[in-house]
């Protein structure tokens, strides 16, 4: 394999790589072995710790998995609500930022910069405190209050991210698109709505799916605040009852990893498909957007 760092290996380099592979494998296996030995030494492989999770004939098995399924459902509910709301508000913000004049743009940019800089966990907690201390009644919304603290907090952050994705998507279109729309007599607004946005959404699709991964991960932030019982908090409560935090957190982590891995693969697939259809490749804000 030749790349920027090293050439096609010759016989000597191949031999060195083979030795390196063996040495590295021994070290990695050794470290894994050490961890496994430590876990075994502390009785973490004991069947009573694992059996509620993996043994269908265990008394708690059905209950534990029913609770985990409820937690997962709560996580997915919050994530779907948050991405839908963010998509609507984010698109409006993004379009406002592009279409408003210089003066009108200032408050939009200020809002975007403010919520982009605020940690999501603070946004969620802020919504909770704001609702509680001003006595705003949000009980008319379906679902628990905790769900909406989470959804609103997530929406505040993610709608400004999506606003930036929308802007990047529209800006990535060739200028000729809007010029042609104006030339056939469309207004700027019509050109945006009927020509630019539909194309932008197509190129944005991979970035939007990646953002869903970020939102899914961020739903678990409420577990720290204890406002809403989603998957991680549900798992934590189960592990307090069964006294097996390592085992339950392992399963919870695995569920998150499988879902998010599948979603990121889907994003890659969509991106590849879009780019082979002769369109510009998907818009990605940057690696940091996915890090939040």
């Amino acid at each position: 394999m030749s790349n920027v760092l090293y050439d096609e290996p010759g016989p000597k380099a191949r031999r060195r790589a083979a030795i390196g592979t063996v040495v590295a494998a021994v070290i990695l296996l050794g470290l894994t072995g050490l961890a496994v030995w430590r876990l075994a030494d502390r009785g973490q492989f004991d069947s009573e710790l694992w059996s509620p999770l993996i043994n269908p004939s265990d008394d708690n098995f059905v209950l534990v998995w029913r609770l985990l399924a409820k937690g997962l459902q709560a996580t997915l509910t919050a994530a779907v609500l948050a991405i839908s709301l963010s998509l609507v508000i984010g698109t409006l913000l993004g379009v406002a930022r592009m279409m408003l004049g210089r003066a009108g743009r200032i408050p939009v940019v200020a809002v975007i910069e403010l919520f982009r800089g605020l940690p999501v966990i603070i946004s969620i907690f802020y919504v909770y405190i704001l609702v509680r201390s001003t006595g705003i009644d949000i009980s008319f919304l379906p679902g628990s209050d905790g769900l909406w603290f989470l959804v609103i907090g997530l929406t505040l952050y993610n709608s400004v991210i999506i606003a930036e994705i929308v802007r990047a998507g529209v800006n990535s279109l060739p200028r000729g698109q809007s010029e042609a729309a104006l030339a056939v007599g469309m207004t700027r607004w019509k050109s945006m709505k009927n020509v630019e946005l539909p194309q932008a959404f197509r190129t944005m699709l991979p970035a939007l799916i990646s953002q869903l991964v970020v939102i899914l991960k961020d739903t678990s932030l409420v577990a720290v605040l204890g406002l809403y019982t989603e998957l991680l908090r549900r798992g934590n409560l189960i592990s307090l009852n069964l006294d097996n935090p390592i085992q339950v957190l392992f399963v919870v982590g695995l569920i998150f990893i499988v879902i998010n891995y599948a979603l990121s693969k889907l994003a890659e697939y969509v991106e590849r498909r879009l780019s082979t259809r002769g369109q510009s490749t998907g818009v990605r804000l940057n690696a940091g957007a996915a890090a939040a």
Partner: peptide, 14 residues
């Protein structure tokens, strides 16, 4: 990358 920070944190702390 696919695991939430909170899960990593809980795993370490608990």
């Amino acid at each position: 990358r696919n695991c939430p920070l909170t899960v990593v944190l809980f795993f370490m702390a608990f």
